[in-house]
């Protein structure tokens, strides 16, 4: 998802017998759905895993602005431009909520940003795909934000209080993102034959990257167990992916478009749609840094950070000068 393949800071799940009294009391709280708050005692590995997950989630929100920001100046109407601008601004806000939540665990935002820029932390694989035309912007809002919502709705119940509260806020805003995307695609799907072709082309390219967002199949997802026991993760990758597929198919049918997967079929017995796996070798390749846009995305983030340094330093110097003057006057 926005946080993929988070390596839990320990391997395997600790049994109750292995736990110290403190750890047992902690696990009991988690089991009873009592939120863990910043000042509460928590296992070091819980803290480390959460910082990794929330940090990656925050980075994804921020890097996710790049493929969309790309189209702000080229939106087809002033109204679409204003909407896209508002959405991209929301993403900055979402990044900020999540950095703030991570900071409550004692990790500074600047440090998380430094780790991202040094390539030691990741962001979601989806943002390493390009947005080639306006239809992609619609498809990103609809499918990418749609997938994000499925994950984030589940995470509202996560055990760490500040993370859960950030998710609740984000979900409220995210629903606007998915709907504006669907609306934009709807316009094209019901427009001229050329527009409809563009919409179909965007879906063809983005469908598999979108379902990859949930991460590898559960059978391959080796780090999930402890995170699930701690309720850092609430639902498994495959559960979330299935939920996304099930909710998206009626949406695409309404548009008269097709999913680029001949394996999609309603399975009466399971009560879910069957669908094909994405090409997981592509997923692991993108994660490793070999996606179409990995290099550019990181370069753009580093440049934005470096170019903004004089503003950050200037405002800080100004604030210090004002404070010194105030002290002198008193």
């Amino acid at each position: 998802m926005y946080a993929q393949m988070i390596k839990t800071a320990r391997s395997g799940v600790k049994s109750r017998e292995e736990m110290t009294d403190q750890e047992r009391a902690f696990q009991d709280k988690v089991d009873r759905d009592i939120k863990i708050e910043p000042q509460d005692w928590m296992p070091d590995d819980y803290r480390a895993t959460l910082i990794r997950q929330m940090g990656q989630h925050a980075h994804s929100e921020v890097v996710g602005q790049l493929p969309e920001g790309n189209w702000i100046t080229r939106a087809p109407t002033l109204e679409r431009k204003a909407i896209l601008l508002a959405k991209v601004q929301d993403e900055a806000g979402h990044g900020l909520y999540l950095y703030s939540a991570a900071e409550t665990l004692g990790e500074s935002r600047d440090e998380l940003v430094r780790l991202l820029h040094e390539g030691r932390m990741k962001y979601s694989s989806i943002f390493n795909y390009p947005t080639l035309n306006w239809a992609d912007i619609g498809a990103v809002g609809w499918l990418v934000d749609g997938a994000a919502i499925v994950n984030q709705v589940a995470l509202q119940r996560t055990s760490y209080g500040p993370y859960s509260r950030a998710m609740i806020r984000i979900c409220k805003e995210e629903s606007f993102h998915a709907r504006q995307g669907y609306h934009a695609i709807m316009k094209m799907a019901f427009g001229s034959p050329e527009q409809k072709k563009m919409a179909q082309d965007a879906v063809n390219r983005l469908w598999f990257p979108a379902i990859m967002m949930f991460g590898p199949n559960d059978s391959e997802s080796t780090h999930s167990e402890q995170s699930m026991a701690w309720k850092i993760k609430v639902k498994s990758n495959d559960e979330l992916r299935q939920q996304f597929v099930d909710q998206t198919i009626p949406q695409i049918e309404y548009l008269g478009l097709e999913l680029p997967d001949p394996g999609i079929k309603w399975n009466e017995e399971r009560g879910h749609y069957d669908f094909s796996d994405p090409d997981w070798s592509e997923f692991f390749d993108v994660i490793k840094g070999n996606g179409p846009c990995n290099v550019d995305r990181l370069k753009d983030r580093v440049k934005a950070w470096d170019d903004g340094a004089w503003v950050r330093d200037g405002l800080m110097a100004h604030a210090e000068k004002k404070r010194a003057r105030k002290v002198a006057a008193e």
């Binding site: 900020l96 909520y97 703030s100 600047d110 950050r312 405002l315 800080m316 404070r323």
Partner: peptide, 30 residues
């Protein structure tokens, strides 16, 4: 020389007649 902006806790009054409530935090120079 970069210094991280200090952290501020933010409280918002949702509507007239209600008290301010903590909503989150952010960084700012002043």
């Amino acid at each position: 020389m970069s210094k991280e902006w200090p952290l501020w806790e933010i409280f918002i009054r949702g509507q007239h007649g209600l008290s301010h409530r903590h909503v989150g935090s952010l960084h700012a120079p002043d």
